[in-house]
Amino acid sequence: MRFAVIVLPGSNCDIDCYNAIEDVLEQPVDYVWHKETDLTGYDGIIIPGGFSYGDYLRAGAIARFAPIMTQVEKAANEGKVILGICNGFQILLEAGLLPGAMRRNDNLQFICTTETITVENNQTLFTSEYSFEEELQIPIAHAEGNYYCDEQTLVALKKNNQIVFRYKNNPNGSIDDIAGIVNEKGNILGMMPHPERAISELLGSTDGRKVFQSILKNWREQHAAS
């Protein structure tokens, strides 16, 4: 399974994501610069965390129009696996690939801690290796992670089982404690916590490994079947 890690001006978790694919999955992975216009050779796409374009205007608002994003949208429509972490999640929201928007954290602080999050749906391409309601220790680091959507959207998210992760002790004011959601089709996951920073005991937690392992396992199963 070949992975692309998108690199935008201001990405700062691209190397961590690259290492996660190499170390946890031992799969081929490339950095893909935001000005590239081809993602056809890739099976999985990661939009990493950071502060693309300095978070100018709104986090993700400018990155969303980077040339590579047309290809990300195309890959999304083809059903390819797309994982947006932190700023990557914000970009997916701005692009309309996931519903809702991010607001400033309700305490106005940049929060950099390790949070307990629970797996609310382990029937996704990204979480099948976890057990239901498993508690994970995953770092967060953001100022705009206060997820918002209108009531109608929230009802739909619940009905379609799109809420994948919830915070145990909501740190930022997110609606319904939401830490991560998938699209209706289930091939796009956006999450504020950083699983790529929780892949080794040296980093303090290994709880993020199964996000990557789930992606690979499901991809292999799909491709063995076809």
């Binding site: 205007l57 608002a61 400018i62 929201l93 809702g100 918002y148 959507c149």
Partner: peptide, 8 residues
Amino acid sequence: KLLANTVI
């Protein structure tokens, strides 16, 4: 398209 995020 860009200047406002009409969700919020």
